[in-house]
Design a protein around this nucleic acid. Structure first.
Length: 275
DNA sequence: AACCAGGCGCATA
DNA sequence: TATGCGCATGGT
C-alpha cells in the first residue's frame, strides 16, 4: 500500500497500483509533463497539481488543502480497488503478464469535455503533436490560472468561435470537428453530463452525433472522461492484440472492466511492436 | 520522398 | 453492411 502525503507530511490517503509515469504518459491524458527532478505537473478541472514519487508513496503538491478530496481523489480514481481488480484480471495469462509489467497504470476520470475534445484531436495523429495542439488550445482560449498556466477552454467559449479562428492550433481538418463538438455540447444537444449514467449504447450514440466522433473517440471519451470502465476503445494497437491474442473474443474476467484491461494490453503491445 | 500517426466522413456497390 | 480513399499537419 502506498501513502499519499501533503508537502508538510500529512497523510491524504492511500492507494496501490499507481505510477504517475505510467498513468500520466500512457496516452489517456495529454496535459502532464515531468521535470528533471521526476516531478509531474499537470492541470485538470482548472486546478494545478504536482506529484513527486518518494519512498513508500507520493507527495501531492496541490493548490489548496481540500483539492485532494474535491478533485484529485476522483480524478485518479483512488477509491477503486485496483489490487483486487488485477487479481481478477490475472485469470487471463496475457493480461496477467501485461499487468506484471505495468501495474502502475490507473485509468483516469478526466473532465468529459476535455476528454472528448482531446480525442477528437487525437484522430489520425501522434501523441507529441496531440500534446502540442492541446497546449496551444489552452494557451489561446483557456482561462489563465497564473504562472503561465491555463485551464482547458470551456465548450461554451469554443462554441462562439469560427473554425478559422482555430488555425493557430494547426490541427488541420479537426478544427471543424472541435467547433461542432463545442456547439453541440454548449447547447446541450449532446448531454455530456449524463454520459456517466446513461445506458452505454445510448451514451455512444449521443457522442457520435458530433461530426468527427466515431466509435474510437466515443469509447475513449466514455472510458477516460466518464468513468465508464466497460468502454473499450479499439485502435490499431488493440486491433493487433485482439487478432493475435483473442481471436475468439474477450475472456469473462474482462467483463464490466474491459476498458481498464484494455489499457494494460494497449501499453504492453505498443511498447513492444513485434510488427 | 514516401509513409505514418490512439480515425472518421463520404462515396460506392 | 462493407470497403476504400482523402484529409491537415508534422515527424521520420
Amino acid at each position: 500500500m502506498l501513502t499519499l502525503y501533503t508537502p508538510d507530511g500529512s497523510v491524504l490517503g492511500h492507494t496501490d497500483c499507481f505510477d504517475p509515469a505510467l498513468t500520466l504518459d500512457c496516452g489517456q491524458a495529454f496535459r502532464w509533463t515531468v521535470n528533471e527532478d521526476g516531478c509531474w505537473r499537470g492541470i485538470a478541472f482548472g486546478r494545478k497539481l504536482g506529484i513527486k514519487v518518494t519512498d513508500g508513496g507520493f507527495v501531492l503538491f496541490s493548490e489548496s488543502k481540500d483539492d485532494f478530496e474535491k478533485v484529485w481523489k476522483r480524478y485518479f480514481d483512488f477509491d477503486r480497488d485496483y489490487a483486487s481488480l488485477c487479481k481478477r484480471f490475472s485469470e487471463d495469462d496475457y493480461l496477467k503478464s501485461a499487468i506484471a509489467m505495468y501495474s502502475g497504470i490507473r485509468v483516469l476520470r478526466q473532465e468529459p469535455w476535455e476528454t472528448l475534445c482531446s480525442f477528437i484531436i487525437s484522430q489520425n495523429n501522434n501523441i507529441p503533436r496531440i500534446k502540442g495542439i492541446i497546449s496551444r488550445l489552452c494557451e489561446g482560449f483557456g482561462e489563465s490560472l497564473g504562472g503561465g498556466d491555463y485551464a482547458f477552454p470551456s465548450a461554451e467559449d469554443l462554441a462562439r468561435l469560427d473554425e478559422r479562428e482555430l488555425s493557430p492550433l494547426r490541427c488541420g481538418f479537426r478544427a471543424k470537428y472541435i467547433i461542432d463538438a463545442a456547439q453541440k455540447t454548449a447547447s446541450d444537444e449532446v448531454r455530456l453530463d449524463e454520459l456517466e449514467i446513461m445506458p452505454i449504447e445510448e451514451a455512444r450514440a449521443e457522442l457520435m452525433k458530433i461530426k468527427g466522433v466515431g466509435p474510437k473517440v466515443a469509447e475513449c471519451t466514455l472510458l477516460y472522461g466518464c468513468g465508464r470502465a466497460e468502454a473499450f476503445p479499439v485502435d490499431v494497437w488493440m486491433k493487433r492484440v485482439l487478432d493475435e491474442l483473442y481471436p475468439k473474443g474477450l475472456p469473462a474476467c474482462f467483463d464490466g472492466y474491459q476498458g481498464i484491461a484494455q489499457q494494460y494490453l494497449f501499453h504492453w503491445r505498443r511498447n513492444f511492436p513485434k510488427s
